[in-house]
Design a protein around this nucleic acid. Structure first.
Length: 650
RNA sequence: GCGCCCGUAGCUCAGUUGGAUAGAGCGUCUGGCUACGAACCAGAAGGUCGGGUGUUCGAGUCACCCCGGGCGCACCA
């Protein structure tokens, strides 16, 4: 509702200024510094002052005098040197909230693709991957909440170096056959993704000790790319098993996908050759004939960087294509520009009925209905900031091909890494060099097996939450306690990963991540639980939740909202749409997290200040109950966007 | 060397795209459970927004120059 009025005021001023001065001005809307100043502040007079060569105060006065009435607005006031402060008609505002008058986001036909998670399928997921998935998944929920059509992709690099390294471990170090590996996967006593975590680190260490053994990697890589032989078989077995493990891990966080495009299909369905032809035909790349890149197909530096002099190799002198090359092909496919498509088969059906598809190189045998994937009008790639250089090259590739629009709609949704705090390393018994000890944080390294595994962290969180739940609700069944503890743990984890803005490096620390107090997910969940509990208690007392629309007249709302306290609290709770819109525009899930915390805080305060069930005055009691219910709905909705569930009790 | 990110309270971080007197959480100190469960609430202390110079009605926010820290700049992904 707040957002609706905000936009209405913005439109009114825009029209008026255009009519009056003939200026097409973007109207900025701000929050007044002090609540007493009103609900909105417009600094437009300052903007106009320069062009009109008049005092801001005078312009503000003219605007206020002539703009006329705006629906839902009770007053426009001039303050300070020329601010225009806007006051809402409280009774009307309350009535609109009561009637649930909301702007319905216009459903668009255009599709947005969000690609996230993208974990190499060769070892267990770690906290860095969790940040990626939490950011991506939340952004998807934000877009969907604003009415956008979104397709979620999780790219699987199942034929890359990292998978090859684990295959090297199985084949050369452990002398295991494909059947041995299958038995290992089937063994309930073994956590296969954890096993690979260690094996990957062991293989990497082996390369260091015996540099000649690096030859094993290229042999294996070739075998995998050719798709034949024992190593290729092990590669496929490992990658499929690990993808399964990752999907399970992510599902614990509530993260789902629509489709898993795999690198093996990009290879086998010759996506690259189609892209290669395009790039050559449009002269986006050329065959280098001299220097260190002699014999390679390269993209000239000028295409993607203003200062760099090094061109980027797309096809190596041995004829193989680099990762960036494949990524250009994949990005072209996302926009429907490649002239090719994958085949698909269903991989999994989620509890909510959503079907997860995976790409395949085999045409479908039956007439199954396959959704149309790709062909998006905008693409967000959730990839950490360390890869921005490569993302720039991919975008430059599209631009060089003449796809300027799509290049502009290719958005690197970048975020900083998750590192380990020194204290965290100490707790994990990770030995630190003298140099590392002086650093503010230590980078996670899969190669060194250095990091916090996602499932371990979730287990730890659940264990801690379970202690709390068990002590507070000893009467509940163990199963129920565990379910509640799990919701709290996941709420804490998702909130922790989302509360930081994307540009902030997270120095992971158990003490902070395991906290359930203060600015945390459980704090917000607790507010919802309390609101629900009030409504439940009311019914337990034999009363009924009132019919708010029938009992709360506009007059009653006006009387109750005359209280500055109630008005401010209701106002805060009604800003969900505005907060969400801002967060989507900024591409910043942290804004949603912040808003959730703010209104939870407002509610907790309200909860303490006003006895609700025991209120004697009928009108006031109904009003307070309505506020409680309104808060509950807004909190639940905002938590939903964050992918956090509210437990039945805490 | 070049590029990107960060520097705000003791610690961890926000700061609505340049607006009014810079805000949270944690920690510290003080107070509040026979109200709808205290995973909560109230209060206090705590700031040269890394430094400097500009831009203008106005700068934590923009430009430039420094200082400190991080990450990139492969025929790896």
């Amino acid at each position: 509702m707040f957002h609706l009025l905000e936009k209405r005021v913005q439109r009114a001023f825009h029209h008026h200024i255009q009519a009056r001065y003939g200026i097409d001005l973007a109207i900025a809307i701000e929050q007044p510094k002090q609540a007493e100043f009103g609900e909105l502040a417009i600094p437009v007079a300052f903007q106009l002052a320069k062009q009109r060569k008049q005092a801001p105060k005078k312009i503000a006065a003219e605007l206020v005098a002539d703009i006329g009435a705006i629906e839902g607005i009770s007053a426009l006031e001039i303050a300070g040197n020329g601010y225009i402060n806007v006051r809402f008609d409280r009774a009307q505002y309350g009535a609109a909230l009561l009637e649930a008058v909301e702007e319905v986001p216009t459903a668009t036909a255009e599709k947005i693709i969000v690609e996230h998670t993208n974990i190499n399928p060769n070892k267990a997921a770690h906290i860095g991957h969790l940040r990626n998935a939490a950011l991506g998944d939340t952004f998807v929920r934000m877009l969907r909440a604003r009415g956008k059509r979104v397709e979620v992709q999780n790219y699987i690099d199942n034929t890359g170096v990292q998978v090859a390294d684990v295959v090297v471990g199985f084949h050369y170090l452990e002398h295991k056959s494909p059947d041995d590996v299958k038995r290992l996967i089937a063994d309930p006593a073994v956590r296969f993704d954890y096993y690979c975590w260690d094996l990957y680190a062991r293989t990497s260490a082996h390369y260091k000790e015996q540099p000649d053994s690096i030859e094993w990697r290229s042999q294996t890589l070739h075998a995998i790319e050719a798709g034949s032989g024992e190593q290729a078989e092990i590669g496929a077995i490992v990658a499929d098993a690990i993808v399964g493990a990752h999907l399970k891990t992510m599902l614990r966080l509530g993260v789902e996908y629509d489709v898993l495009p795999r690198e093996s299909e990009i290879l086998h369905l010759k996506f690259w050759s189609a892209a290669f032809e395009l790039l050559k035909e449009r002269k986006a790349i050329y065959l280098e004939t001299e220097g260190k890149n002699k014999g390679c197909w390269v993209m000239p530096a000028a295409a993607f960087s203003e200062d760099s002099e090094d061109s980027k190799v797309i096809v190596r002198s041995n004829g193989t294509v680099t990762y960036v090359g494949k990524d250009i092909a994949y990005q072209l496919w996302k926009f429907g520009l490649l002239g090719k498509d994958f085949y698909y088969r269903p991989l999994h059906v989620y509890a909510d009925g959503r079907v997860l598809w995976v790409t395949t190189d085999q045409p479908p045998t039956s007439e199954s209905r396959i959704p149309a994937f790709g062909r998006a009008s905008r693409v967000y790639n959730v990839i950490d900031a360390r890869q921005s250089y490569l993302q720039d090259v991919v975008v430059a590739g599209l631009r060089a091909l003449g796809f300027d629009d799509q290049a502009g709609q290719s958005i690197h949704f970048s975020y900083e890494m998750v590192a380990l705090s020194p204290r965290c390393c100490a707790e994990l018994d990770i030995p630190l060099s003298e140099e590392d000890r002086r650093r503010p944080y230590v980078e996670v390294s899969g190669r060194k097996g250095l990091g916090v595994k996602a499932d371990d962290l979730m287990d730890k969180l659940i264990e801690k939450a379970l202690e709390e739940v068990a002590s507070r609700h000893p009467e509940a069944s163990a199963e129920e306690q565990r379910a509640v503890a799990s919701q709290i743990a996941i709420g804490a984890l998702r909130y922790f990963l989302l509360k930081f803005t994307r540009t902030s490096v997270i120095a992971f620390d158990f003490q902070e991540a395991l906290s359930f107090e203060g600015e945390t997910g459980p704090y917000v969940q607790y507010a919802v639980v309390r609101a629900r509990s009030i409504l439940r208690k009311l019914e337990e007392k034999g009363e009924r939740v009132p019919d708010f629309r029938a009992e709360l007249s506009s007059g009653a709302l006006g009387r109750q909202l005359h209280s500055e306290d109630f008005w401010q609290v209701l106002l805060a709770a009604s800003k969900a749409d505005a907060a969400l819109e801002r967060a989507v525009t900024a591409g910043e899930p942290a804004h949603v997290a912040k808003y959730a915390f703010q209104i939870a805080q407002e509610f907790n305060n309200f909860y303490h200040l006003y006895p609700i069930i025991h209120e004697q005055d009928r009108e006031k009691k109904v009003f307070l109950l309505w506020m409680t219910d309104f808060f509950r709905a807004q909190l639940e909705r905002t938590l939903g966007v964050l992918g956090i569930e509210a437990p039945p009790y805490m």
